[in-house]
Design a binder for these strands. Structure first.
Length: 806
RNA sequence: GCCGAUGUGGCGGAAUUGGCAGACGCAUCAGACUCAAAAUCUGACGUAGGCGACUAUGUACCGGUUCGAGUCCGGUCAUCGGCACCA
C-alpha cells in the first residue's frame, strides 16, 4: 500500500519549491515567451477578510493563468489594493486610527489569505492606490486632464448623499439612492470638479464593438451612454424675440405638436409667465427645486403649470401653449420639448390631464383612430394631418425630417447622449487630494507636475463637515499656499477624488510600479500591456469598467500608452450565496476559506470553487459538497500511486481514453465551462480506475497526462504526481497535451433503436457500419415489436436507428 | 412599463447544439470490511404500476413544427438582474 494522500505535506512542499524555483518565467530554452496578462479586479482591503465568494474569482483567474502558463506564455498576474474609500475613513472616525494604519493592517491580513490560494501572483508588481508613489500618477493624470480642458469646475445641483456627506457621480446613484449606503440622495448646489467624459461618448460607444466582453455588459454601457438621433427645432415665442429650442427624436411628428413643455429649471421658465400666471409659475419653479430626485421620479401623476405664453410652430404657424413640468429634465437635450400627445405616452398623459388637444399625425392601419385612449407609439405608418407631409411613410420621414428642418432654417439634425459629465470631487478625507491651487489672480492653477505627489496632510478629525467642504479645509497650514504661477498667497483645493480615480488606471501601473519618471515606461508597456483577460464581478459594468475605458482613451490621446482599450476580454463570475442570499459579513452567512484549506487542502477548495456551478452564474454554497472533490483527489492519488511502478504498456483502450480526456478537458476549458471540466476529471478518473482493474494497470503516459491536465486546477498534487511518475522538473514545463482525433475513435458504437422516436432497444454495432447494416441490425433487435407498415427508416451515424411505422 | 437572463430528481447541476433526459457530485438507503465506529469499497436512487427482464409518464405551463423537442417556433406564468419620465 502506498502512502495515503497527505495534502498538508504536499502543499507545503510545493509551495516552498515554487518559492525557490518560480514556474512562471519570461523566457525558456525556446527563447522569450509571449506574455499573457490575466487580471483580477483588485479588492478593497476591508476589515472582514476574504470569504469563499472572493476566492471563486481568484481561482478562476488563476486556473486560466496556469492553463496559459502550460501553453508556454509568460503570465502577468498581479494583485494590489484599491485602498482609498469610506470604510477605512469611517473606522478612523470611530476609532481615531489613521486610515493608513488600519488599511496597512487589512492589507497584511488579505495578503495572508490570498496566499492560501497558491495563485501565480507576482507580489513584486503589487500596487496600493493610497501609496503616494502611486497616487502621484493619479494626480498627474488629473493635471493632464485639466490642461487638456477635460477637468473643469462647475457649480450646479449635484447628487448629495446626506449619510456619506459627499457628492456622488450619476453612476453612483442607484434608484435614487446612494450606491454605497442606500441613503436617499438629495440635491445640493455645490462647486464641483467635473471630468468631461461626454467628449468621449462616441468613442466609448463605438469601440464596444472591438471588445470580447459579455454582451450584457456591452449593452449596459451602450444604454448608459444612450446615444439618440434627432433634431433641434426652434419655436419662436409668440409676441417676443425669444425662441425655444427643443430636442426631438421624432421630427416627423412636428405637425402633431400641440403644446410645449420646459423644465422648471429652464432659463426662460420664469420669463414666460404673464401677470395672471406669474404667481403660479414661480411657486411651481420653487416647489420643483425643493423636490428630491426620488420624489420627482416617484410622482406618478404628472404635474405642471401653464406659463401664459405661446410658441409658434415654425412649420405651420400654429400657436401652442407653453407649459412647465418636472417630467422634462433640465440637463438633457435643451431642457425643453415639443409635445406630441398622440404619439408619446408621457405627452398623452399630460395632455389628457390638462385637456390639451391631441392631433394624430400617423395613421394606424391606414386610418385615423377615433377617440384615442392611449398614445399610438408605432413609428411606422402613413402621415396624416401633416400638410405637405401627408401620405409619406413616417419611418422614412423620421430620417429625412431633420434635413428638411435644417434646409428650412429653423432647426438642425443633432444627436444626444444620456451620458453626463463625471462629478469627480468628494468632500471626504481619505482620497487623493485634487492637485489644484486657487489663486485670486490666476484662478485655478494645477500643482506643477514636479511637485507631485501632493500628499494628504494629517488631520485632527476625519469627520466630514457636511457643509460641502472636505475635512482638509480645516487645516490652515495645508490650505494656505502660494500660487505656482504668480507666487502670491493662494488656497489649495480641498476636495478629494472619488475611489474610482485609482482603479481607473491601476492595471497600467502594475507592470512598472517603481517608475518615478513616468506612469509606465514605453518598454514595460510594450512588453506587458494591455490586459488580455479581466476577471471580476458584474457590479462594475457601468462604473469602473466605463471609467477605465475613458482613462485609457485619454492616456492614449496624450501618448502615454499606445492602445485605446484596456481590457481585451472580460469575464464576469457569479456571486456565491448561502441560504439563498449573497454571502457577506453583515448577513452572517460567511464561509471562511481558512478552515476549508486546513481540513481539505488548497487543491480541494480550488476545485470545489469551480465545481459548485457554472462560473458565470451565481451559486449556492454547500458545505458538504467539498467532500466530493476531496474524495476525487484521493482516488486520483491512489490510482497514480498504485500504478506508477507497474511499467504497463499502453493499450489501444488506454490511448483512446487518454486522447478523449485531453480533448474533453481542453474544449471545456476553452469554453470556460469550468464546472464540467471538474466533472470530466471525475468521469475519466473513474474510467481509468475501472480500466486499471481490468488491464492490471495504466501506462505512465496516460497517468502523466492526467497530472498535467490537473495542474491548473490542483497545482500541488499535480506537481507531486508528476514527480512520483518519474519526471524531472516542474509539471508546468510539460506543455499542454495535444490530442489526436484519430486515436479517439471507437471500434464499436452503442446505438439506440427507436420505433417512432421511442427507444425500444440498445444495440452495439461496428463503428464503420453502413446505413443499411445499422438499420438491418436495428430491425433485428426489435423484430417482435415491428407490427405496422414501415414508412421511413432513419439512421443517425453512431447514435440512433429510428423505424417509422404506421 | 421596457430590455435581458433563468426555470431539468430531495439538492448543485450535465446533455457533443434536434438524436438513449438526469452525466458528475452531494444527500439518502442497502451490502462488504470492522469487536465497533470512522474511512474505504460495492450496489440502489425522477414518478406511477408490476415479483419480474418491463410498461406508462416526465425537463415551469398551453399549443405548434418534426420520424424524433430540455433544445426550434408562438403564447402564458414565475424568479432574478439591468434600465426606468433621456422626449
Amino acid at each position: 500500500m502506498a502512502a495515503p494522500y497527505n495534502h498538508k505535506a504536499i502543499e507545503k512542499k510545493w509551495r516552498e519549491n515554487w518559492e525557490k524555483n518560480p514556474v512562471n518565467v519570461k523566457s525558456d530554452e525556446n527563447g522569450k515567451r509571449e506574455k499573457y496578462y490575466c487580471l483580477d479586479m483588485f479588492p478593497y482591503p476591508s476589515g472582514s477578510g476574504l470569504h469563499v465568494g472572493h476566492w471563486r474569482g481568484y481561482v478562476i483567474s488563476d486556473v486560466w493563468s496556469r492553463y496559459k502558463l502550460l501553453q508556454k506564455y509568460y503570465i502577468v498576474h498581479p494583485m494590489g489594493w484599491d485602498a482609498f474609500g469610506l470604510p477605512a475613513e469611517n473606522y478612523a472616525i470611530k476609532m481615531g486610527v489613521h486610515p493608513a494604519v488600519s488599511t496597512a493592517e487589512n492589507i497584511k491580513n488579505f495578503k495572508k489569505q490570498i496566499d492560501e490560494i497558491s495563485a501565480l501572483y507576482d507580489w513584486d508588481m503589487e500596487v496600493n492606490t493610497t501609496d503616494p508613489d502611486f497616487y502621484k500618477w493619479t494626480q498627474w493624470i488629473f493635471v493632464k486632464m485639466f490642461k487638456e480642458g477635460l477637468a473643469y469646475e462647475k457649480e450646479f445641483p449635484i447628487n448629495w448623499c446626506p449619510s456619506c456627506k459627499t457628492g456622488l457621480a450619476n453612476e453612483e446613484v442607484v434608484n435614487g439612492k446612494c450606491e454605497r449606503c442606500g441613503t436617499e440622495v438629495t440635491k445640493k448646489n455645490l462647486r464641483q470638479w467635473m471630468l468631461r467624459i461626454t467628449k468621449y461618448a462616441d468613442r466609448l460607444l463605438n469601440d464596444l464593438d472591438k471588445l470580447d466582453w459579455p454582451e450584457k455588459v456591452k449593452k449596459m454601457q451602450a444604454e448608459w451612454i444612450g446615444k439618440s438621433y434627432g433634431a433641434e427645432v426652434d419655436f419662436p415665442v409668440d409676441g417676443t424675440d425669444e425662441k425655444i429650442t427643443v430636442y426631438t427624436t421624432r421630427p416627423d411628428t412636428l405637425y402633431g405638436a400641440t403644446f410645449m413643455v420646459l423644465a422648471p429649471e429652464h432659463a426662460l421658465a420664469a420669463k414666460l409667465a404673464t401677470d395672471e400666471t406669474r404667481e403660479a409659475v414661480e411657486k411651481y419653479i420653487y416647489d420643483s427645486s425643493m423636490k428630491s430626485n426620488v420624489d420627482r421620479l416617484q410622482d406618478k401623476e404628472k404635474t405642471g403649470v401653464f406659463t401664459g405664453s405661446y410658441a409658434v410652430n415654425p412649420l405651420n404657424g400654429a400657436k401652442t401653449p407653453i407649459w412647465l413640468s418636472d417630467y422634462v429634465l433640465a440637463d438633457y437635450g435643451t431642457g425643453a420639448i415639443m409635445c406630441v400627445p398622440a404619439h408619446d405616452e408621457r405627452d398623452f398623459e399630460f395632455a389628457s390631464k390638462f385637456n390639451i388637444p391631441i392631433v394624430q399625425v400617423i395613421a394606424k392601419d391606414g386610418v385615423e383612430i377615433e377617440n384615442m385612449t392611449e398614445a399610438y407609439t408605432e413609428a411606422s405608418g402613413t402621415m396624416i394631418n401633416s400638410g405637405e407631409w401627408n401620405g409619406m411613410e413616417s419611418s422614412v420621414l423620421k430620417k429625412e425630417a431633420p434635413h428638411i428642418i435644417e434646409e428650412k432654417g429653423f432647426g438642425r439634425a443633432t444627436v444626444n447622449f444620456k451620458l453626463r459629465d463625471w462629478v469627480f470631487s468628494r468632500q471626504r478625507y481619505w482620497g487623493e487630494p485634487i492637485p489644484i491651487v486657487h489663486c485670486p489672480d490666476c484662478g485655478a492653477v494645477p500643482v506643477p507636475e514636479n511637485e507631485l505627489p501632493l500628499t494628504l496632510p494629517e488631520v485632527d478629525s476625519y469627520e466630514p463637515t457636511g457643509t460641502g467642504e472636505s475635512p482638509l479645509a480645516g487645516i490652515e497650514s495645508w490650505v494656505n499656499t502660494t500660487c505656482p504661477v504668480c507666487g502670491k498667497p493662494a488656497k489649495r483645493e480641498t476636495n478629494t477624488m472619488p475611489q474610482w480615480a485609482g482603479s481607473s488606471w491601476y492595471f497600467l501601473r502594475y507592470v512598472d510600479n517603481g517608475n518615478s519618471e513616468a506612469l509606465v515606461s514605453k518598454e514595460k508597456a510594450d512588453e506587458m500591456l494591455p490586459v488580455d483577460m479581466y476577471i471580476g464581478g458584474v457590479e462594475h459594468a457601468v462604473l469602473h469598467l466605463l471609467y477605465s475605458r475613458f482613462y485609457t482613451k485619454f492616456l492614449y490621446d496624450i501618448g502615454a500608452v499606445d492602445f485605446e482599450e484596456p481590457f481585451k476580454k472580460l469575464f464576469n463570475q457569479g456571486m456565491i450565496g448561502k441560504n439563498g442570499i449573497k454571502m457577506s459579513k453583515s448577513k452572517g452567512n460567511v464561509v471562511s476559506p481558512d478552515d476549508l484549506v486546513r481540513d481539505y487542502g488548497c487543491d480541494s477548495l480550488r476545485m470545489y470553487e469551480l465545481f459548485v456551478g457554472p462560473p458565470e452564474l451565481d451559486a449556492e454554497w454547500d458545505d458538504r459538497g467539498i467532500d466530493g472533490v476531496y474524495r476525487f483527489l484521493n482516488r486520483v492519488w491512489n490510482l497514480v500511486m498504485d500504478n506508477k511502478d507497474k511499467d504497463i504498456e499502453a493499450t489501444k483502450e488506454m490511448i483512446k481514453i487518454r486522447n478523449k480526456m485531453v480533448y474533453d478537458i481542453t474544449t471545456r476549458l476553452e469554453s470556460f465551462s469550468l464546472n464540467t471540466v471538474i466533472s470530466g476529471f471525475m468521469e475519466y478518473n473513474n474510467k481509468l480506475i475501472d480500466l486499471a482493474k481490468k488491464s492490471g494497470g495504466i501506462d505512465n503516459e496516460t497517468l502523466s497526462t492526467l497530472a498535467v491536465l490537473l495542474a491548473p486546477f490542483a497545482p500541488h498534487i499535480a506537481e507531486e504526481l508528476w514527480q512520483q511518475l518519474g519526471h524531472e522538473g516542474t509539471v508546468f514545463n510539460a506543455g499542454w497535451p495535444a490530442y489526436d482525433k484519430e486515436k479517439m475513435k471507437d471500434d464499436e458504437k452503442e446505438i439506440a433503436v427507436q420505433i417512432n422516436g421511442k427507444t425500444r432497444a440498445v444495440i452495439t454495432i461496428p463503428a464503420d457500419s453502413s446505413k443499411e447494416e445499422a438499420i438491418a441490425a436495428g430491425k433485428e433487435a426489435i423484430a417482435d415489436k415491428l407490427t405496422g407498415t414501415i414508412v421511413k427508416e432513419i439512421y443517425v451515424p453512431g447514435r440512433i436507428v429510428n423505424i417509422v411505422q404506421k
